[in-house]
Nucleic acid binder design. Structure first.
Lengths: 212, 212
DNA sequence: CGGACTATTGAAGACGTTCAAGGTATGTGG
DNA sequence: CCACATACCTTGAACGTCTTCAATAGTCCG
């Protein structure tokens, strides 16, 4: 997708739990994630945390940096991450070549964000977790990282909780319920979805929520 | 803010409850809201509704249309709306003139969306309603439509519920609690905030959430 | 092998929902 | 200008989902 020229020079690595960006920092480059997962989040003063975006291989981190010039929320590596540094500016819309993925990435991020507003505002624990697992699988599949009906899933239950707005305890119970129903198989950081359609129905998606 | 040339020709009106855009429609123009309120939302199959964005005077509806070319969620007028039709395309970033507000509007929308993820995922009813009323007041103030510590607030309690992810009944009780504490005065579509700082603390904002 | 993080389980409790009814505005047509 | 219909707001009581607290097991990795 990107030019191979001088890739090595612009490649950067982050270890698990290392920051890709800190709050209110002015990033000097956007990152094109090649390997590993990261997340953007916000922390409330009493410790409550909400993850507001996930970055998977093939994602730009973060398109918004090119708009405002500032990272308003911290981004931290969930696993080890390998990425490419890209110029942090709005590409000319005339020359779509080179970074033709930028607008698509920005649009996709806004779309996903709006979908999560619906999920966090109106859905049950079961629907929330289903939404998350489905989105992860679909995004991994589009990145060419799904194998059949399964893919890597490095999130801990606490991270799932911080994404879905639940407590880790309740995520645990919800996952058990889903396993018991045969909706998902999830163990040792690996996710398998026996019946994609069944999980879609449980997630209460509207059809516009994500690539079918 | 916008050129006065030929304004009349491009001015459009929408009545309360009329659609500014329908789901999956390809809008032929962006709208610059001059007067009135509108909202974007998503409806689940069982009737649950979540509002995902509010459009107030001075807002663009919707910047994202210029990116994807499609309105993925319906937009409906909350009050009567007067707006200007603008070309629905990404402005050249070299020529900021004319639509210099576009990037700022887009960036602001993404920012607000991320803040609502935090609120819907992690905050209590009281904090949610406080966040909403504060945001409305601040945005109205920036649009020059606040008078002292008050501004118009045309939302019904049901619309507040669909924005905050609560039930209308609980919004009612939350508002009463806020009134009893002297945090807000809200009657006949008019909002007054006696102590801005007190409400900010109740909203559990982080300082980055919105213009101070 | 030890230490820390992660997952699991149980019991009690809180916050918000649901259902239902009554009261108050608001706007329209006669 | 009043009558009426509709929408909106308010209140009460019972219920349910999810949280909180706490303790135990499992897993990973140096």
């Amino acid at each position: 997708m990107l030019s191979q020229v001088a890739e090595g020079e612009n490649q950067v690595h982050f270890r698990m739990h290392q920051f890709l960006a800190r709050e209110n920092e002015k990033p000097d480059a956007m990152l094109y994630v090649q390997e590993g997962w990261a997340c953007r989040y916000r922390l409330l003063s009493d410790g409550r945390r909400q993850i507001t975006a996930l970055y998977l291989p093939g994602d730009y981190c973060d398109p918004q940096w090119a708009l405002g010039g500032v990272a308003s929320q911290p981004v931290v590596a969930i696993t080890n991450v390998r990425a490419l540094r890209l110029p942090c500016r709005i590409p000319s819309h005339a020359g779509f070549d080179g970074h033709n993925g930028f607008w698509q990435a920005l649009s996709g991020m806004i779309e996903r964000q709006a979908n999560w507003l619906v999920t966090l505002g109106r859905k049950t624990a079961l629907e929330r977790v289903a939404h998350l697992l489905l989105e992860l699988f679909e995004r991994m599949r589009q990145a060419g990282l799904a194998y059949g009906q399964q893919c890597a899933m490095p999130l801990t239950q606490m991270e799932i909780a911080d994404m879905t707005g639940l407590t880790p305890v309740h995520v645990n119970r919800t996952l058990q319920s889903m396993r018991a129903r045969g909706l998902v198989e999830l163990q040792s950081k690996w996710l398998r979805i026996p019946e994609l359609q069944a999980l879609r129905e449980v997630a209460a998606l509207t059809g516009q929520d994500m690539a079918a």
